[in-house]
Design a protein around this nucleic acid. Structure first.
Lengths: 208, 208, 208, 208
DNA sequence: CATGAATGAGACTTCATTCAT
DNA sequence: GATGAATGAAGTCTCATTCAT
C-alpha cells in the first residue's frame, strides 16, 4: 500500500483544522501535529501558512469551476441546466463538507487573496449563472426577474447547510452528511426553481 | 455633546474589526488602537478578549430574540406573522450589518460559547419558527412540508446577503446598505413565502 | 462593636496572603479583595506594595526585639536566661505563625530592605545571644564553644517548625498550632541547651 | 572546549536567579538574559516558567534521594548510618548551595507541585529517617524519643545554614562555601547526634 | 526529503499606581 | 477617608519562520 505523502497529510490536516477552528485559530503546529509531520515541512511545501491557505482555495475553486463549466457546456433547456448545476454543486459540497465550510467562512473576510478569488472564480461563476438566467428569461421558461437577486437567493440556498452545518445538526437535527439529506434538499431547491424562478402555469395563462 | 464612553468605544471598534478580520485575526491592540483607549481597558471591562466576544454575542442575540418574541406574540395569520418576522429580521440585520456578519461567521466555529448559544438562543428561534409553520400547515395556509428543511431555506435566504456582503457588493454590485436593497430583497422573500411555503391556488383547486 | 479599620484589614489580609503565596506571588488586588477594601487604599496607607511589606517587617521585628531585650535585662543565670529567651521566641512565633513564616522566608531573598534588617534587628539579636553565650562560657555554665555555630544551630531549631510548617504538618503530622506542640518542642530545645550547650556533669567531673 | 548547551545555560541561570530573587521575583526575560539565549527557549525546552521550576525540583530531589537511599542500604550501626547520612546531605548541599537555598525556600509555598513533592520525596525521606531512628532506639543506641520531633530538629540543623545563608554570612560572618565550615558544622551535628539522640553513659548507667 | 533547534515578533494579560471624584 | 476608572509597564507565552544538519 502506498503511504500517504507528507504533502497530502498536511493538506488533509489543514482542511480539518481550518474547518474546526478557522484559519487564524489554527497554528501550523496544530496542523503538523495532526498530520504527524515536522512543522518545517509546511514552509517547505507551501511556502508558509498563507501559502497553504491559498492552496486550499485553489483546490476548492479549480474543481468547483471545472464542474460548473462542464455542466454549462451541456446542451439542454435553461431549466434543466439550472437543475443540473444545482445537483452538481450540492454533490460537490456534500463530498467535501469540511473544505466547503471553511472556504465559505474564510471568503467572508476581506483580504488580498479573497479579492483575487472574487475577481476570478466568483466572476466566472456569476457569468455562468447569469447566462443561464438570461437564456431562461429570453425563452420564457423563467419569470422576468432581477438576476442578481435570484443569484443571492440561490447561493443562500446552496451554501446555508454547509456553512452552518453545526447549526443544522445541533439545532434542527438534520444530518448533512447522510445521503437522505442530499436527495431531500435537492428536491427543495428544485421546487424553488420551479415555483420561484420559472414561470408557472397560473402566470402563463395570464399572459395573452 | 456627550463623550463616548471608553466601554462603548471598545465595543464599536471591536465589532468593526471582528467583522473585517475575524475574531482571531484581530488583536486587542488593533481594537484599543481604533478605539483610542489603553489596551488594558479591554481586560478591565470585558475580562479579556474572549469576554469581549461573548459580550458581542449577547448584544446581538438578546436584541434579536426580543424582536422575534415580540412579533411572535402578535395576533395575526401565520402567513402575516411569517412576513412580519422576516421584515423584522432583515431590518435588524440591515441596521447592524457589521455585527451581523461577524456573528454569523463566528457562530460557524465550534466552541463552548457557540454551543451555549445554539442551545439557548437558536433553540428559542427554532421554536418560534416551528410554531408558526405548524400553525400555518394546520390552518391550510401553508403547504404540507418538512419544517426543518423550510427553516434551512429561510435562514439561508435571511443570512446570505449579510454574511457574504462582500461577495454581494463586489461581484453582484448589489449594495446591502442601501434602502432599495431592503425593500427589494423583502419582496423576494415574500415571494418565496407565497410561492414555496404557502398553498397556492393551483394546489388548492386540486384538493377536493 | 468597633469595626475593623481599613488599615488593619489590609495588614491582616496581606500577612495571610504573603504567607500563602509569597510576597511576589501576591498581588495587591488579592489583598484588597480579601480585605474587602479598594485597591487604591494600599497605596494610600502604605505607599505601595513595597511599603506594605516593610510595614510587615517592622511589625514583626519591633515586637520581636522588644521581647528579646526585655528578657535580656532580667537578672538570672545564663542558662535560665537562654531558656527564657527560647520560651519567649517560640511563644511569639506560635502566636503569629503566618507572619513568622512569611518573614522567615522573605528574609531569605537579597534586597535593600533585607540588608537593612540584617544590619539592625539581626545584629541586635546576635548581640543578645552572644552576650548570653559569653557569660555562660565565662561562668562555666556553658561548654566552651564557637558561639556563631551555636547560634546557627539555635536559630535552626527555633525557625524550622515555622518556616517549614507545611512540611511539619503534611509529612510528619505534627500540628504546630496546638498547645501540645509548644510544650513538647520547648522541652526538646531545653534538652539541646542542657546536653549540647551546657557543660554536663560527665565533662565537669573530668575537669579537675 | 565543549560549548554549553542552551538548555543547560537556562537551568544554570534560573537556579542563580531563583536563588537571588525567588521564583516569582524572577522573570523569564531575566533568565534568558543571563543565559544569553532567546526567551522563547524557556517555553521550548521546559514548557514555560512553571515547567522550569519543576525541572529544578526534580533535579534537586532525584539526586538528593538517590544519595539518601544509597547510604540507607549500607550496613552499619544506626549511629554510624545517621552520621553518614548527615555528612552526605551537608556535602550535597554544600556542592549546590544556590539550588538548595531556593528549593528550601520555594517548598515553603503551598502549591500543587509542592504537595506532590511532599507526598513523594519527603515521605521517602521521612521513611529513611524513621527507620534509622527506630532501629537505633530498638538497639538501645538511641535514647527513647519522639522520632517526629527529632526529625524536626535534625532538618532544622541541616537546612538552616543553607536557607539562611545570607544571614549566616552577613550577620555571623560564617562562610558556608568554605571547606572549613563543612567540617566544623558536621562536628556540631555529630555532637547533637551523640549528646541528644544517643543514650549517653550517664543515662546508660541509670538503666539497671 | 525531513528534522529539531533556535529566534524575533507580537499576542494577551496582569500588575502597581495615579487621579479625579 | 475611600473609590472606580484608566494607564503604562512588564510579564508570559505562542506563533510562523529559518537554518544547519
Amino acid at each position: 500500500m502506498k503511504e500517504i505523502s507528507t504533502r497530502d497529510a498536511i493538506v488533509e490536516a489543514a482542511i480539518s483544522l481550518f474547518n474546526q477552528k478557522g484559519y487564524h485559530g489554527t497554528s501550523i503546529r496544530d496542523i503538523a501535529g495532526l498530520a504527524k509531520v515536522n512543522t518545517a515541512n509546511i514552509s517547505y511545501y507551501f511556502n508558509g501558512k498563507q501559502g497553504l491557505l491559498e492552496y486550499c482555495y485553489m483546490k476548492f475553486f479549480e474543481s468547483y469551476l471545472e464542474l460548473l463549466e462542464q455542466v454549462f457546456l451541456q446542451s439542454c433547456s435553461p431549466t434543466e441546466k439550472l437543475k443540473k448545476l444545482v445537483d452538481c454543486i450540492i454533490t460537490y459540497q456534500c463530498k467535501n463538507p469540511q473544505l466547503t465550510r471553511f472556504i465559505l467562512r474564510e471568503v467572508t473576510i476581506d483580504s488580498q487573496v479573497v479579492r483575487e478569488i472574487m475577481s476570478t472564480y466568483y466572476v466566472k461563476e456569476r457569468y455562468i449563472f447569469t447566462q443561464i438566467f438570461e437564456k431562461g428569461i429570453e425563452r420564457k421558461e423563467f419569470r422576468k426577474q432581477s438576476i442578481s437577486y435570484s443569484i443571492i437567493q440561490l447561493k443562500g440556498l446552496l451554501s446555508m447547510p454547509f456553512i452552518h452545518s453545526f447549526y443544522v445538526t445541533e439545532v434542527l437535527h438534520v444530518f448533512v452528511n447522510e445521503d437522505y439529506f442530499k436527495r431531500k434538499y435537492l428536491e427543495e431547491i428544485h421546487r424553488w426553481i420551479h415555483d420561484v424562478v420559472c414561470l408557472n402555469e397560473k402566470e402563463l395563462s395570464i399572459i395573452p
